[in-house]
Structure formats: structure tokens, C-alpha cells
Design a protein around this nucleic acid. Structure first.
Lengths: 248, 248
DNA sequence: CCTGCTATGTGCGGTAACCCTCGTATGCTG
DNA sequence: CAGCATACGAGGGTTACCGCACATAGCAGG
């Protein structure tokens, strides 16, 4: 496996100090994560945690009437299965792959061992959990106050940040399911974005031509999530405060 | 201070084993939490964590244009300031008291000491954080899919669960700000609830007359939050799994 | 008891997003 | 290359919520 598919494609794994990384590396299992695969069912017990490298996964809630909407997305910046170390072992939401790709998984027991060492891995996981909480919070705010167009832009940008290229492979219907809106709403908004020259698309493929254009149409929620994620996790390896702050 | 105002009015503090409770008890400081008080400013550093007993606090996000909406509420079932032990030390949201009352606070440093013992307190805090995440998630779902009336019912029920009586002291305007909707929308929905005999209200006071009536009008979100909170935290003292699960 | 502030009630036009339906065309598959 | 599933586009009626403007009514302070 070449470096483009190695574990350190995942930002959390990459942020581990060498010693900690080598301790878990033998137990990291490369797995394919095809489009549509359900990693966790609502209220299902977790056997593994997943560190995506090229795949992107949606945590979403399916309502009694069948409608659903995304709570948060997880790609190479994060990990799936935080309810393991939070103590609940499951959540009321599902986790479904919406951009096929790869990731590494680790057995639940091994992750808990690492977590209980109360070292860098624990700090990283907890900080990631907080970043995720911010993402969920902004989803809530965004759902209340912002237009479908703004939400589409936010969502495209967040997804784009998790991919190496500027091409997303997905249908408008899929995006509509993620955002919990009608497909026609996405068609309209995407049409306007194409008209503006920010994106171009054809049957299941969306190319982003002008990132900053999308950013001007997105609501502040995108920036809040990015900024908070950066604050909590970026350059985390360099920051002494990662450990020291926990004892202050 | 009588038992009706003691620290074990807070469910998290009450769930601590005797030994752990006595270790922190001397450091718990009873504080008044009057309506409107801002406990944490957006991105402000935390000096204390707060365990409300009779007060209720809203974590909410204020947008650039001044509009705001609640992300989650915290009362005697929880604690404010989880970003301390999550490692971020702050969040992009504010924490404002919306039902005046009392609570206990603990210095940040002392809470971190307890957290780093990796004992029951840590398990409790992490589990509570997960319950809070579920609450935020359902807020997101609810904002997307449910009517103002459903959301009002959900919100009244969640608030009611944190109070000893069936009377809420708050204006429709306040509720509107919490839910991020127009005041008139609340007037209408509340009018219907009063017509149905579920509540009765007068200028700043709402009495709930028929809980189960409200439950029938609320969306599933209320039940999901309650159930998950119960699963994660109820009778936590009796459950051996609280510690054992973390080593499994 | 009066005054004034503030909470609540109401009405009206505007609009974004809904629901449903159907037409069109793209790109895979045999 | 032909056939077909499915992704996208478009139209029309409906509704929930918004924004504003203003009327009424409860309650506190003088």
C-alpha cells in the first residue's frame, strides 16, 4: 500500500506521536468502505472504530416516518465510533458511507486500551469529539436559519475538504437526503451555482470550479466549523498544551 | 441550606459514590444564577464548571446578523463547561441562564483533577457529554423537520423535566428566542395548546396542566433525548458496567 | 388609582420550501 | 448500438413561517 493510502492519510492517526502510532499500527486493518455501507446501525453495538482515509461517512438520524437528515459528516479528519469511549457504546443515529473509499479500523477493545492510557490518543479523541460537537451544533443552527442554497454550499465545502480532488461523485438526490431537503431544492440551488460558474456537474458528478465563490454563498456555519476544527486539532502534535492543558 | 437546595439536587453530583462526592464537596460553591446571566461567552475561557440545581441554562449560538438559536439546554440533569475536559476549553456558543435559580460551581483546576483520576467522575462526565451530543443532534433534526408547535412541545417538556413544579416562569418572546422562531409563532402554537387544555398561561407564566397531552403533540425528538439520557445516566450508581465497560 | 412599560393577540402580504407530476436525457449494460 | 434505468429539469398548487404593523391587556411603580 502506498503512502496515498496509508494510515497517516487520516489526520488523527497522523497526529499521533511515533511511539503511540507504532503501538497501534499492527492492529490497524485497512478496509474498503463502499458507497452505501452501513457502519453502525441506530442503537447497534460497536465492534470497531473507523478512521477513514478516502471514504466519507455520514452520521444521520432516520425518523419514524422514514425522513432523515445528516447530523454530521466524518472523513479523513476524524473517526467514527466515539460513543465507544464516551461510554455509551452506541447512539440513536446511523453511520452510512456516502463517498466510497477506504479507511482503517481498530477493534473496540484496542481503542479502549489506548484511551485508558490517558495519553495523547485520549486527548486527541476527546478534542475530536468536541470538534464533532461543534459541527453538530452548527448543523442545528444552519437547519434553523439558513437557506437550502447556503446549506448546499456549506455541505459541498465540508465534503470537498475531505477529498484530494475537486470532483465529488454523488447525485443531487444523495445530497438532498443528506441535508434533509427535497431533491428539487438541490437541483435549483445547484443550477444557480453552475450558472454562477462555481461548479459544473453532470449526472452524478460535481466539479468545484471556484471554491471561494462557494464560500461567499455559504453561511458562516462553514467557517465556524473549520475554524474550530483547526483550533482544536491542527498542528496538535506541535502543541505542548495538548497534554499540559489537561493538568492545568 | 436544606436538602432541597443541596448539591445532590444535581443528578450528576448525586450519582457520585460517597467517597468521590466527599472529596469534591468542600470545593462546591453555591451560586445564584439569575435570569439572563451569561456563564460563558462565545470563545471565552472557562474558570468554573457549573452544576445547576434549580437554574436552567441554554447553550446557544448567536449569528453574525444577531439572530440566535438554542443548541441545547442544561439543568439539574447536567453540567456546564464540558469543553474543559474535552480539551478545547471553550466553544463557539454562549451559555445563558433562562430560568433563574441556583447551582454549584467547581474551579476548573479541581474538575480536571477529578477527571484525570479516570474514575467514576470521568465516566459520568463523558457519558453526560454523549447525552448532550444526542440532545444537540435531535435539535438539528427537529429544526429541519418539525413544526413550531412540535418544537414548542418538545422544549416545554424538556424544560419541565428540569423543574420541581409544573409552572415555568418565562415569556413567549424568550421561548421564541430559544427556538429561533418568531414570537408570533409561539403565540399561535401556545394558544392552540391552551385551547386544547394542555397548558394555561398568563403574562410570563406558563402552567402545564396535561403533560401527556403535550407529549402527543411533540415530535419523537423529545422521547429520543429522554430515553438516551436515561440509558446513559440513570441509575448509573448501581451499574457495574459504568467502570467495567471502559475496560472491556 | 392612574400611568406606562411590556407581554400577548391579530391581521396581512410575501416567500421559500413543500408535495406531486411529468418530461427529458445521460450514460451504463447487454 | 440499442435499451433502459435513473439522474436531472420544470411547472403548478399548497403551506408554514416570516416580517411588519398595530391593537389590547396585565402588572408594577408612583
Amino acid at each position: 500500500m502506498d503512502s496515498s493510502q496509508g494510515p497517516n492519510q487520516n489526520h488523527l492517526l497522523a497526529a499521533l506521536p511515533t511511539a503511540e502510532f507504532h503501538r497501534i499500527a499492527p492492529h490497524l486493518e485497512l478496509v474498503a468502505m463502499p458507497l452505501g455501507e452501513v457502519l453502525y446501525e441506530s442503537s447497534g453495538q460497536l465492534q470497531h472504530v473507523y478512521f477513514p482515509t478516502t471514504a466519507i461517512v455520514s452520521m444521520h438520524y432516520v425518523m419514524e416516518n422514514g425522513a432523515s437528515s445528516e447530523i454530521a459528516g466524518v472523513g479523513n479528519e476524524g473517526v467514527l465510533g466515539i460513543s465507544l469511549f464516551m461510554g455509551g457504546n452506541t447512539t440513536p443515529s446511523r453511520a452510512v458511507v456516502y463517498t466510497g473509499g477506504y479507511g482503517y479500523r481498530l477493534k473496540a477493545r484496542l481503542l479502549m486500551q489506548e484511551f485508558n492510557r490517558a495519553d495523547i490518543m485520549q486527548r486527541l479523541l476527546l478534542r475530536y469529539a468536541q470538534a464533532l460537537m461543534t459541527q453538530i451544533s452548527q448543523t442545528a443552527v444552519c437547519n434553523r436559519h439558513h437557506s437550502v442554497e447556503q446549506q448546499l454550499c456549506r455541505w459541498l465545502l465540508l465534503t470537498l475538504d475531505r477529498l484530494p480532488s475537486n470532483e465529488l461523485v454523488m447525485t443531487q438526490e444523495l445530497i438532498a437526503n443528506m441535508l434533509g431537503v427535497r431533491r428539487e431544492g438541490i437541483t435549483e440551488a445547484a443550477g444557480r451555482m453552475q450558472q454562477a460558474g462555481f461548479i459544473s456537474y453532470r449526472r452524478g458528478h460535481i466539479s468545484v470550479l471556484d471554491r471561494s465563490g462557494l464560500e461567499t454563498r455559504a453561511c458562516e456555519c462553514y467557517a465556524v466549523v473549520k475554524k474550530e476544527h483547526h483550533r482544536l486539532l491542527c498542528d496538535v502534535r506541535n502543541r505542548q498544551e495538548l497534554l499540559s492543558s489537561s493538568h492545568s
